[in-house]
Every structure is written in C-alpha cells, then in structure tokens.
Design a protein around this nucleic acid. Sequence first.
DNA 1: TGCCAGGCCCTCTTTAGGGCCTT
Length: 207
Amino acid sequence: MDSTVVVIDFETTGLSPDEGARATEIAAVVLDRGRVVARYQSLMNAGVHVPRFIEELTGITNAMVREAPPAKEVMAAFARFVGDLPLVAHNASFDRKFLDAELARIRQRRRQEVACSMRVARRLYPDAPNHKLGTLVDYAGVRVTGRHHRALADAEMAAGLWTRMEEDLLRAYRLRQVPHELMCRLQTVRRDGLADFMEGYKRRCGP
DNA sequence: TGCCAGGCCCTCTTTAGGGCCTT
C-alpha cells in the first residue's frame, strides 16, 4: 500500500486563515494504485459570511453554507476518514494551512505530511502553459469530473493528475512502481535536474 | 461590504525581486 495517498481539496472564504478566512467545503479521495477507492465530501458551516466573489467563483452560496453541518462535525469526520495516510493537494501550502487551522479548532493535529501535486508538475511538465490545476488537467489529458472550484471535483482531478504523473515517471524512467516517498522527494529537485535525479535514484534503489 | 497572504521557485540571485498558485 506504499502508493496509497489521500488527495484533498478545500474551498474557503479567502486566502488565509490568519486573516479570518474559514473553510466552506472539504473533500478527500483515497487513491490506491491509480484508482479512487473512497470519497469524502461535505460543505461546512463555520458561521462566517461567504463573499460575493467566492460565491461566484465556487458556486457555494451563503444559503448552502447556512444549511451545512457545523465545521467541527465535518472536520472530525474528515480526520477519521483520512487517518494517518499521506496527503496530497494542489498547491499544498494553501490546503495545509487551512487543514491545520480547522483541526486546531477541534483540538486535533495533522499527523502526516502533505505532498504538492503542483510542485511535482512543475518538474515533470515544465512546458505546460501554466501549472494551475485546470490547465494541467487539460495538458495531461486527465478526465474532467465536475465543476472546477468545487472540492470533490478538484480533489478527483488532482488525483487524476497525480496518477498521470506516476504513469509518466514509470514510462520515462522504466520504474516498476513509484513510491510516494519518491513523489515527495521530486518536489525538492530543481526542475532542470529531474533527469539526473532519476538516474541517481535508479542506481541507489533499483528500477 | 470589501478586501486580504504566504510559501515556493526562478534568475538578470544569494546584501533581492518578482511571478505563480491556492480561495
């Protein structure tokens, strides 16, 4: 189960929990050997106003949030769902800070690292027009599963992108498998040093 | 109601600046 990860995505009222932004929706998909085998998704009511811009961006309205279960219940269920499995998110620094902030409100702490699909994509696809999730989904031929900026659709498409990147690594470097640890280490490799890194990896670890 | 940040990476770099990406 070395390759099993949970791909997560938050929709929020803004860009930073330090500035008062809260989560409005969260989703997680369990990705096992390239297949989504479990899903979790919920809107959540954190008792905050959703700005008009965010309503238009996400389609998540104040009325939808008012009728959603309390954030503390959603986050507790989310924490049970993901357990200790390693996490993946697109632009992980964003989702990580909201995850940590929302968990702290229910007196829980994250127990695993969050790998970043955007950072890996920047290594693997330096010629993509840009590295937004929507652009990479088109560029890599990932199936569009729903509306962008809704948590479950974005988590599923990020999972599809993660799978495609594993496949491209397998093809390009003739590996038998792509351990999650390798995907994490790719994040810290300079973009122009990927080929050298992979050759070194194969020598140390075998194909 | 309207507006907001921060980590990462690249390069014309490292005594820094600016673009990208997330909502």
